[in-house]
Amino acid sequence: MKRYETPTSNGDIVLSTRVRLARNLKDYPFPARLGVEDREAVNNLVKDALLTDENRDSFDYIPMQTLTPVQAVSLAEKHLISPEFASDSAGRALILAKDEDVSIMLNEEDHVRIQVIYPGLALEDAYARAEAFDKALEQKAAIAFDERLGYLTQCPTNLGTGLRASVMLHLPALAQGGTMRRLSSTIAKLGLTIRGALGDGTRAVGDIFQLSNQVTLGISETAAIQNLNAIALQIIAQEKNARAALLKDDVFIDRIWRAYGILKSAHMLSCSEMTDLVSLVRLGAAEGILDIPLETLNRLLVEMQPATINVAEGRRCTAAERDVIRAKAVKDALA
């Protein structure tokens, strides 16, 4: 079962939780100044440190050159790797859990990027899992560290704990009320950031936002996690209030049913149109207006992205072909 298929805590608003730790080996220059041979030495060292006889069967070790560009982009669409990591495969490798809840990028911006992705709001659990890998790594390898600056990273923005934690939030009611801009500036003052998680950055497609910590130096992992969790819970409470107010409006309830109607009957659906419609339907499902499991909708948001459809089809489809395939898959999922 993949992570986005399991129901969980605050799942009506929180799609997923992600924790990432950036680590580097002391004895090698950072990846940008590392040749392919040395990068491979780093990959092997980390692989041997993290994959043991007990856990080897539940992970895949994937040298990135063995993937097609479309397969790599599909992994980026699922947020398992960064778009940058997908764009260049030289000397890079991925340790990926078979159920896709752990993804460790080797020689991305840093030698090691440990990522744990859990459904719902699960910051503490996700951090604990990431920390276990971190501890396993430092048993076997000397880690780049400085007492003043903490874990040393290629980009100084990650110095300190090297921890980036985030929660992906579905906030249709807050976005509808136009409060996101104000919310975003309040959040910035607290050392956090919130931005659209999907689409091109000009607007938050599907009203899905990513809330994450910004500051990594001078704050402990526990404090950063607790801080983020507290703010996430506040935003969730605000979204719940806004939803309650919004759903008193028949005009808005009509929009939800119309979105459902289009998804059930369209012959072609572009990715952004589908995402916006699924967002409305997801709100209806979360609030008991529509009887559709949230997991079904979460799955559509992940699996109906362009490269992921190409991978599933085993060929490079045109955009128009994909829109037909997408519309049919959505129809089937909602039948």
């Binding site: 560290f145 903490g150 874990y151 100084p156 300190g160 001078g218």
Partner: peptide
């Protein structure tokens, strides 16, 4: 570094080796 993080000193985990 201070412009990004403020006048901060590391307050998080320390690797075992250290």
């Amino acid at each position: 570094i201070q412009r990004i993080h403020g006048r901060a000193k590391h307050a998080g985990r320390i690797p075992y080796t250290v």
